[in-house]
Design a protein around this nucleic acid. Structure first.
Length: 488
RNA sequence: GCUCCCAUCGUCUAGUGGCCAAGGACACCGCCCUUUCAAGGCGGAGAUCACGGGUUCGAAUCCCGUUGGGAGUACCA
């Protein structure tokens, strides 16, 4: 059992493509088969430098591994079509087809083709090549017009019947399919030819690809037949839609794996979420480890209909994974994330010991790795910047706030040991003494110590900040408030 | 236009003729917990299973049609 992922290196891999790759990979792993990566770069103009690396990186990041591919070779290499083209793999197939009258040279100009298409559309006929060169003897053509492109001679009648693992039997009327190009004038094969030749050469047993290929399936089947190959088993998985119900694309915001990674999504959550888009095990399970995905995945349980990419659910799932993470693993992930995507506001290196103290306070509060830094900025930034006005809580004023702050200072100084419990006890006592609500006092202190309205739990945070630094920032708050008061 | 695919709460889905006056999850709303924000707990609202015909004792599940959506229609993949 051998499956493949055949991306074309045209840019950052898109979640839809990756999801298809993941399905093919899971299917192979579930069946103890091989997963192969083949780069389809037969469109010279659209090939982008470095795109193959991005695709491979995104896959590895997710935990997808492959047995044969452009970077590691294999028995059926090379795994890049432009290299296979140089070896004459495709032209050999073309020759076979021409020799058996199942393909022919076509010298029609783009102008003629355009004109043809226009008149067909105008007379509401399906656009397609009219077979103009099909019956021409190539030797009668002027030399300079020879060998422009090669077209496949589709059977003119009959029905091509194929069975798709997900969709069942599908029938196509041959007469409705035109003689498509298999070899371009630059000598490169088109996708149609290349994928058939290579899937056969690489002994791919199951072709798992996106639904958008379904309409060209009869072309491929006829190509297999013409070449005398046994076609593989096909499974066309549904495509992923954006919230506007059209094919997910760049204009819908983040769509590449790399973008999600930069936004602080976890590989495990991403993989889990992607699998649930179009596949399910039962009526309740939705959190899966990689091992479980491999164990439980089956192509028959892939749904037929396309799914909308729900960012909210991804967020929830990512948060779930963060909450379930082992402490050390979360810290490791955060550090790696900050190395890959540095935090500009950090000017103190987050040490493991500091992180071990603070991570338990934030793990229930973040949905992505990206959200961690702003939340604990007060620990790793030299200066807190906030509007002094924020120190003044509801039903408090400048004077009472200043008074409270000044009263806090000696209390804090007295707390020994300086731990969360002691801090809480003493501060509650103080609030009582000052006849203000605990929440009012805590709110002011929260701003003074963290510079944020929303922060991890106050007392635990103060403990981590330490007595000295706490006193320092409260004094600073007093100063800020004083100068602020002067202005008013 | 033509060809093909698809159709269950807003979203992802369970469901393969009786266990479904349709179950779970996200999102949403309320309550509890509470130093902020989360997390968590409890509860709620939300789907005449796109519509119309059949078949059947019985249909979300099978058949036909309609409508809607999507994809394809290139010397792109």
């Amino acid at each position: 059992m051998r499956t493949r992922f055949a991306p074309s290196p045209t840019g950052e891999p898109h979640v839809g493509n990756i999801r298809t790759a993941v399905f093919a990979w899971l299917f192979a792993r579930n069946n103890n088969g091989s997963f192969i990566i083949r780069v389809e770069d037969t469109d010279q103009a659209r090939s982008v430098e470095g795109a193959t690396d991005s695709i491979l990186q995104s896959l590895s990041w997710l935990g997808v591994d492959w047995d044969e591919g452009p970077d590691k070779g294999g028995e059926y290499g090379p795994y890049i079509q432009s290299e296979r083209q140089k070896q004459g793999i495709y032209s050999k197939a073309v020759e076979t087809l021409i020799d058996s009258n199942q393909a022919y040279y076509c010298s029609c100009s783009t102008e003629r083709l355009d004109k043809l298409r226009k008149t067909q559309i105008k007379s509401s006929k399906p656009p397609g090549y009219d077979g103009h060169c099909r019956t021409k003897n190539i030797n009668q053509l002027p030399a300079e017009l020879k060998s422009q492109v090669v077209r496949f001679a589709m059977p003119k009648s009959g029905v091509t019947e194929v069975s798709d693992t997900i969709r069942g039997t599908i029938k196509f009327e041959n007469a409705l399919i035109d003689d498509f190009v298999i070899l371009k004038s630059d000598g490169f094969p088109t996708y149609h030819l290349a994928n058939v030749v290579d899937d056969h050469a690489m002994k791919i047993s199951h072709v798992i690809r996106a639904e958008e290929w379904l309409p060209s399936l009869p072309r491929h089947i006829n190509l297999y037949n013409a070449l005398g190959f046994d076609p593989p088993i096909f499974a066309h998985v549904p495509i992923i839609l954006a919230p506007d119900r059209t094919k997910l694309s760049k204009r819908h915001g983040a769509t590449s794996i790399k973008e999600f990674r930069s936004k602080g999504y976890l590989a495990s959550a991403m993989l889990n979420f992607l699998c649930l888009l179009g596949w399910s095990l039962d009526d309740k399970t939705e959190i899966f480890t990689v091992k479980e995905l491999i164990e439980f995945f089956s192509i028959e349980r892939v749904s037929k209909s396309s799914a909308i990419f729900d960012n909210k659910k991804l967020e929830w799932m990512n948060g779930h994974y963060i909450r379930e993470f082992e402490q050390s693993k979360l810290i490791g992930n955060l550090k790696k994330y900050w190395t890959d995507f540095p935090v500009s506001t950090f000017d103190i290196e987050p040490t493991t010991s500091k992180l071990e103290a603070v991570v338990p306070l934030i793990k229930d509060r973040i949905k992505t790795l990206e959200e961690a830094a702003p939340m604990i900025n007060f620990l790793f930034s030299e200066t807190l910047s906030y509007d002094p006005e924020m120190l003044i809580q509801k039903k408090m004023d400048y004077k009472s706030t200043l008074y409270a702050l000044n009263e806090v200072l000696p209390v804090i100084n007295e707390i020994n040991p300086f731990n969360a419990n002691n801090i809480e006890d003493n501060l509650r006592l103080l609030a009582d003494k000052l006849s203000i609500k605990p929440g009012q006092l805590f709110g002011t202190l929260r701003i003074a110590a963290t510079g944020q309205r929303v922060s991890p739990p106050l007392f635990e945070s103060l403990e981590i900040i330490g007595k000295d630094k706490t006193v320092e920032s409260i004094s600073l708050a007093v100063q800020k408030l004083n100068s602020h008061g002067d202005i008013n």
